[in-house]
Each structure stands twice: as structure tokens, then as C-alpha cells.
Design a protein around this nucleic acid. Structure first.
Lengths: 213, 213
DNA sequence: CGTCACGTCGTGAAATTTTCCCGTGTCCCG
DNA sequence: CGGGACACGGGAAAATTTCACGACGTGACG
């Protein structure tokens, strides 16, 4: 469990970024990149094969994304150590990643030392959250912005997602076998619960919370 | 003008990504990374100092972004060769970058060879657009999606931006010294001109066209 | 077992917004 | 001197949003 050897798997859809990790990590004694994957599905498959001590994972990737990748790997191996390294500086993504089982979250805008530090910390069994995200998390509490996933019921959340997917009220109604009127009511209730006045604010809140492309 | 030596400046806010470029490019004979910058302002300052033969530029960066960076550099040196290398796969960004003076546009999801190929092409004086963006550009024509900047008048565009900035109809009205009624009419007209039915679609169109965060 | 809280679903009617159609004035261009 | 595009807003109909209310099922709890 605390076997902190240094084999690493990189997961990122951008080849240049993998090259960057690799170049940075190889300079560290004891660390060795033993596998690379470009999406969550490949990551899962490779993980089972090579059993790296640490996975460095991006979140937004075509096909199976990072969150789902984390979930799958952790389901197969509860002790897997996964460090998220992504450009997303919003707390929503971080919360999702940690809930899925990540042991660390570092943003790409952090200085290289922060990543290396986090790699070592997570290998040593610790949890590593980069300072800017700590700050974001604190802010998101202070700002009082409601987390959609928290304040909405399952039904409301479902409807919100369909709304955000550019479906009309009537389309959603028939897809869910509800009256269009009910959807309109839910639409209204959702905005109320999330403290937003317009659809535009709603979309942007969803964006901030990582609920959208 | 056709002096195709190989000095290169890298502009990207993520240190890892610069490390990746560098590692990839150093392997090529004749290419040499002579400068690095983390945003558009720094890029402009450094460009004047070191005069690299090629600039590889990211678009989304904190502070002065890539588009603005391209504009500044090209204003100072009309013959500057700038290659955009970004994660944005939407045609809107590409159009803006090219208009600002970029000589090439490659997405980060392209295989490494595509970037190297583009680097050589642009150094040789050619224009390089990666295939996926070509495809996107073609699609955006075919899909018939209106480019907001094209079909809207200046006033309409201005109002749209304020709408997207989460300001209410009344706020905009008083900010612009117009009647709320006029804003409402414009709001309606904008959606009409862009062929979108709801505000949600409007925001997503703006997103696709790079008009938003 | 009651009942209390809650989520879900629907209705109807009022309030508000959106949309549509209209007119005005201004500017530019042939 | 006409068009024609644009900016600006009024009025009225149409659609939507909001609000208040009721009904139903379900799970928690004394």
C-alpha cells in the first residue's frame, strides 16, 4: 500500500503535453514513465496491464473523460493513486475528481515544482491539492454560489442538463413523459434554487461548475 | 523574408506544455528554442528583443491573450511568422487568429508530426492549417451557422456582448442610455439573425465562436 | 400506525417578457 | 431626389414565467 516506487502512467490527449510531463519527470531520480494513454478507456485498460504506482490524469479528453477514467480505475483497484493535472481551475471539477477517487489535483498553470511536489506527495500516500484550487474551493464557499449537484433533486438536475443541451421545453416534456407545463415549472424552480435570474446566467454557472463542454 | 533559419519563441502559460514543445523541437536539426513567454504582453516584449524566426503561440492565456499578442507583434513587424498551437478546435478562434496575422493554426490534439510539419511550412513561408480545423471551417460553412461578428451590426453585437456578460435588460438600457424596450427588441432581433431559439443556444453559439471565456 | 416533511406532478390565473408589426429619424449611396 | 440599411422605440397580441394551490407517494420517526 505504501510501496512508493516510482512507476508512472501519463494520461492526456495532447501528445505535446505528455512529452512535457515525460521530459520533466525523467529528470527526477526514482521516477519512471512506464505507460501513456490518450483517454479514460485506454487508461483503464493499460492500468490493469502495467499497474503503475501513480497515474497522472487530464480531465477533458475526447471519448471517455478523466472523471470516468478515475472511477473505472478506482473501481478495479481501490488503492490506485491518481493525480489530476488539468487546465481547469474551477472548484467544480476538483470536487468531482476527488469524489471519483483522485488523490490530488494540480492545475497546469502551476509552476513545475508544484507538480513534482504533488507527484511525490501522492506517491507517499498523501493528498495533494494545489494552492490555487484550495483558494477556489474557499472562494466557492464564500461566494455562496450553489452547487447544482447539491441543491437540485435528481429530477431537477436531469431537466437542467437537458435544458443545457439545447432541447426545447416540449422536447424534454415528451422525452420524460411529463407535461410541458411541468418542465416550465421545473425550469423556473431550477433558476430559483440556483439563484440565477436568466438562462444566460444559468449556462455560465453550469460552465463554471464543469457541467458543460 | 524567406530567411528560414530556425530560432523559435514559445508562448504558452503552462510550463509543462512549453517543456513539451521544447523537448519535441530540440530533436529536430536546425531548430532552436531561444525564448519563452507566458502571455501576450511578455511575448511582444521578448519578440522585439530576440527577433525569433518563428513564434509558436497559444491562444488562451491569463492577461494579454494570444490574439492580442499576435496583433501587437504583427503591428511591430509585418513579416513576423506566427504559428498558433492551441487546444481550441473551433473555427471561430482560427478565423480570429488568422485575421490577426497568424500564418498557421494547429490544434494540440494533432499528432506531433503535424506540428513539426507546420513549423517547417511556416518557416518556409507557407500557410499551415491543420486538417481538423480545415474540416471545422468547412463544416461551419456547411452547417450554415451565422458568424455573429458578420451578420450583426455594431450595435447589435455590443448588446449581445452585454447580454452574454450577464447584465439584465434594464442595466444595459441605462448603460447605453436607451429604452429597455429597445434592448428587448434588439435581444429578440439578435436571436432572430443568428437563428437561435433560446438564450441557451445563444450562449453556446457564442462559446463555439470564441466570444466567451 | 399516523403524520410530517419532501419530492414530484399538475392546474389555473396573473404578471411579465417576447415577439411582431408599425412609425420615426438619420445617414449614405447611386 | 428616392431607395435602403440602421437605430430607436411604441402598441398589442402571444408566449412564457411566476406564483399559489392541491394531490399523490414515500420514507423517517415517535
Amino acid at each position: 500500500m505504501t510501496a512508493a516506487a516510482g512507476t508512472i502512467m501519463l494520461v492526456d490527449d495532447h501528445a505535446v503535453v505528455r512529452e512535457g510531463y515525460r521530459s520533466m519527470l525523467q529528470k527526477q531520480p526514482g521516477l519512471r514513465v512506464v505507460a501513456e494513454a490518450a483517454d479514460g478507456a485506454e487508461a483503464y485498460r493499460l492500468f490493469k496491464e502495467v499497474r503503475p504506482d501513480l497515474v497522472i490524469m487530464d480531465l477533458t479528453m475526447p471519448g471517455v473523460g478523466g472523471i470516468e477514467g478515475i472511477r473505472r480505475i478506482r473501481q478495479w483497484d481501490r488503492s490506485a493513486r491518481i493525480l489530476v493535472f488539468t487546465m481547469h481551475e474551477n472548484a467544480g471539477f476538483a470536487v468531482q475528481a476527488i469524489r471519483a477517487g483522485a488523490r490530488g489535483y494540480v492545475t497546469k498553470s502551476s509552476p513545475p515544482e508544484t507538480l513534482l511536489r504533488a507527484v511525490k506527495d501522492v506517491l507517499a500516500g498523501a493528498i495533494a491539492i494545489s494552492p490555487d484550487i484550495d483558494h477556489e474551493l474557499a472562494l466557492s464557499r464564500l461566494s455562496g454560489e450553489k452547487a447544482a449537484a447539491d441543491v437540485l433533486t435528481a429530477r431537477e438536475f436531469e431537466v437542467m442538463q437537458m435544458l443545457l443541451a439545447e432541447r426545447t421545453t416540449d422536447e424534454i416534456a415528451s422525452a420524460l413523459h411529463l407535461s410541458p407545463k411541468t418542465i416550465a415549472n421545473l425550469h423556473s424552480l431550477i433558476k430559483d434554487k440556483l439563484d440565477v435570474a436568466s438562462d444566460i446566467e444559468l449556462v455560465r454557472l453550469a460552465l463554471r461548475q464543469g457541467l458543460l463542454s
